[in-house]
Each structure stands twice: as C-alpha cells, then as structure tokens.
Write a protein that binds this DNA or RNA. Structure first.
Length: 439
DNA sequence: TCTGGGGTCCTAGGACCC
DNA sequence: TCTGGGGTCCTAGGACCC
C-alpha cells in the first residue's frame, strides 16, 4: 500500500525539485505601545500602557510595564495610583494611528518577500520558500528594514509550518538576549529543544480550557502535544487540535492565505462613556453603531440579510439590576443601505428596550452576508434599488475625504453624551493634517 | 464610579429528507 | 425476535485568536 509514495513516483523525478516550504511569522513587539513611541522617542525606556476603549483596562504593555507586574486586562481604575507612583505613561487606544502604522509595516514586509498574509493588526505570515539561505539573515533583514522604515521593533520566527513559525517567534521574544529577536526553527534538534521548554498553552490554538484538559492527559509541554497520537486528539477534541499537533511535528496542514475572504459577520459594539437610561440615547448610539457596521459591510462589497441588535446593563455592579437582551431581524432584501439598516435597528431596539435600567453597552451584528452580484432573487423578493447604492457610494466617498461622520444620519449628534471616554488620547500623527508632528 | 471589541471554526443534537 | 443508511440544514454552545 505504501509503495505508491516515495521516489518511485514518476512525477517526483526530473530536474527540478520542489523547494521545501518555509514560513516566517513577523510580530510587532508591544505593538500599540510601540506606535505611541514612534513619535515620542522620550518614551523609550519608560513603562507605557495602552488602554481599551473607554479607558477600561490595559490591552498593551511595554517591556518596562510588564516588568512592573502590570497584567493584561487589568482594570485601569484599580491601577491608576500605582501607575502614577511608578511613572507609567498611559494612553487611550488610538486606532487611527495604529491602523496607519500597521499598513506601513505590512507594506514594508511586502516589499521584501514574495507573498504574505496579514494575520492581525500586528502580525504577518510571510512565504520564504525558495529564498537563498541562510534564512536567518533574511529574518534579520526584515527586522532591520521594518525598524528603519517604521520605527516598529518586530520579532521573526522561521519554520516549515505556520504553527512552528508562531512558536519560533515566541521563542525569539522569550530568549531575546540569545536570539536577537530572530529564530529559525527548521533544525530538528533546536526545534525539539524549544518544544520541550515551552508549556503547551504557548502553542497557537491551545488556550486556557484546552490546557487544563490536556494536562489531565499528561500533556504539559509543546513537545508532549507533538508526540501524542494525532488520531486520538481528533477523537477526544477536534480536527483543529489534531492539525496543531501535526504541524508541531513539521507536517504542513495550514496554507498561506493571501487574500482575505469577506467576513461572514460584522459586528459593531461599544461600551458607553457613562451609563445611559433614556431610550433616545440608546437610539442614537444604535444608529451610530449601525452606520459603522454598514460602512464595514460596504468596504468589503457585501450585502446582509440579517441584523441583530442587543443592549445590556453593566454586569459587575451587584447593586444594580441587570438586563441584557437582543433581537434578530430578517431584512426585506439583501442590503447595504445605512438608512434601511438603521430603520430595522430602531425597530428592534424598541422591542427590547426596558425603562429603568442603567445601560452600559449596545451591539449591532450584521449576518447572512453575501457578495454583491451573487444574489439569486425571485419574483416576490424586491432587490435593493440602484439609487440606494449610488447614495451610499457618495456617502462613503465624502466621509473618506473629509473624515468619518462628516455625513451621517440626522439623529446622530456630533458629540453625543454616550460616546466613549478617551482622556489619554495621543495625536493623529499620521492621519490628521492639523496634528502632524511638530519639532 | 470605573472591567474592550472585534472575529473564526468546530461539534453536538434535533428536525427533516429519501 | 428482528427495526438501514445515507444525507442536509439549523441552532446553540464552546473553544480559540488578537
């Protein structure tokens, strides 16, 4: 049975040998903090943290802040005094800045490698297949060029599978003094050494819950997971974990995804800056979030057929009554028209709104998303009128040119009372002409 | 007083089909 | 006494990622 594999297969003969697949995972160090430092070199060496929307909790920490023991997700109000005492610089999230810096980092990487996949705002897989050895030099070249062009420090992990590249990147950061931030994990001896040292939950795809279950099976390290029988992992857990284990052994199960598939769900949800009690305030917030979701929908050239609107009170204060509810609505036709979406969102809100609660958050979810031009209609289902598409295109063009919210639904005020707190916001260094760097 | 905002994929189970 | 063997679609829930 096994005789079909191996060198006897005619297709494997011939002059050219397929080069071995190699991936790199490039990951920005403390990305949001690094972005704040790009135009504030005085912050180098200073502990820096970036807070979530509403200045709620810590979502990024510089190395110095980590050293002080500040943990991810720590509520800011509990930390403020400690931060003041230790000279910690805190910032509100400045997504306009981070998004723009991210674009620059990705374009820089793109100029150096044959193909790449943007995995998140601060991470990117690159295809290094066929690039001349030694690849560790290529890794260092990427790191240096990104820093030279964007002032963002990155780590680079190189391996034959994505899961191992992630692990290599992790190792590069963990043992930065020895690695200089670049690790090539293709050498089996080095790979096994690293696998044995890293706990299983450092593996991409193994989180808190799985860690507990795996440890019950005696799987403590990445090495243990790699050695475990893949088939029984599939039976006991899922095909996902099976692939993870195989990838750890160097068997490729995940490919580079260069084109991002359109999202199947689009969500816009946010905590309010302060608790809201009135239907009118929630109505305004819901209209605003719906507008944002509709923008995202149109940006990927999609239409949606289902809208869900949800509201909730704060969940932490035991003194106040809690309430959370949502309603899912079928739309009259597949649409990307902000006006139609807002209308349905308001209808939904009216159904779930209850008087007398301190609301903290609203959420809009667009679902059953399809691509424009891929809809098969029927005689009895109207299609979205063409004029609506033209109007939305104009709306987006105006807002692109003059800034988000320049043209908006009439019920949304410019500075609403529910908008989020951002008391520690840095400048729009790269996105606002009135806020460019001054020397 | 104060605790984020997005996403994805997979599985199990029920209802239903032939 | 004995009770098949495939499927699909939907929803809820659980796990993960950054």
């Amino acid at each position: 049975m096994n005789s079909r594999s191996g060198a006897s297969l005619p297709i494997a003969c011939g002059a050219s040998v397929m080069p071995e697949q190699v991936y790199a995972l490039i990951d920005c160090n403390s990305f949001y903090c690094s972005c704040e430092r790009v135009f504030r070199p005085d912050l180098n060496g200073v502990p820096v943290v970036v807070l979530s929307n509403n200045d709620g909790c810590v979502i990024a920490r510089s190395a110095e802040a980590k050293k002080l023991g500040i943990s991810m997700g720590a509520p800011w109000f509990q930390l403020r005094e400690f931060a003041r005492q230790h000279g910690v610089q805190a910032f509100s999230s400045n997504y306009a800045l981070y998004g723009d810096v991210s674009d620059r980092v990705m374009r820089t990487i793109g100029s150096l490698v044959p193909a790449y996949e943007i995995y998140s705002i601060d991470e990117c897989f690159a295809d290094l297949t066929g690039i001349p050895e030694p690849l560790i030099d290529m890794g260092r070249a990427i790191k240096d060029k990104v820093f030279q062009w964007t002032r963002i420090p990155v780590g680079v992990g190189i391996a034959n599978t994505k899961t191992l590249a992630k692990l290599a990147n992790h190792a590069a950061k963990r043992w930065i003094d020895r690695t200089g931030g670049v690790v090539d994990l293709r050498d089996p001896e080095l790979r096994d050494k690293v696998l044995r040292k890293l706990p299983v939950d450092e593996v991409w795809g193994v989180g808190r819950r799985l860690k507990v279950k795996l440890e019950a099976l005696g799987i403590q390290t990445a090495w243990d997971l790699a050695q475990y029988d893949a088939w029984s992992l599939r039976k006991q857990f899922s095909v996902v974990l099976e692939k993870t284990a195989r990838e750890l052994r160097g068997v490729r199960c995940l490919d580079l995804e260069e084109v991002e598939p359109p999202k199947q769900m689009i969500c816009s949800s946010r905590m309010f800056g302060t608790r809201q009690y009135q239907h009118s305030a929630l109505a305004e917030a819901v209209a605003s979030y719906t507008s944002r979701a509709a923008e995202k929908l149109r940006a990927q050239k999609s239409l949606c057929q289902v809208l869900r609107v949800g509201i909730q009170t704060g969940m932490f204060n035991p003194e106040q009554p809690r309430y959370a509810n949502s309603v899912t609505l079928q739309l009259p036709y597949p649409t990307d028209d902000t006006r139609v979406l807002i209308q349905y969102a308001q209808f939904g809100l009216a159904r779930i709104f209850r008087e007398g609660y301190a609301y903290s958050k609203a959420e809009i979810l667009l679902a059953e998303i399809c691509q424009r031009g891929e809809i098969t209609g029927d005689l009895f289902t109207p299609a979205q009128p063409a004029i609506a598409g033209q109007l939305m295109a104009t709306l987006d063009a105006v807002n692109r040119k003059y800034g988000r919210g320049t043209l908006r639904a009439a019920r949304i005020r410019e500075a609403p009372g529910w908008s989020m707190r951002r008391e520690l916001l840095s400048q729009g260094f790269t996105t606002r002409i009135d806020q460019v760097w001054q020397i």
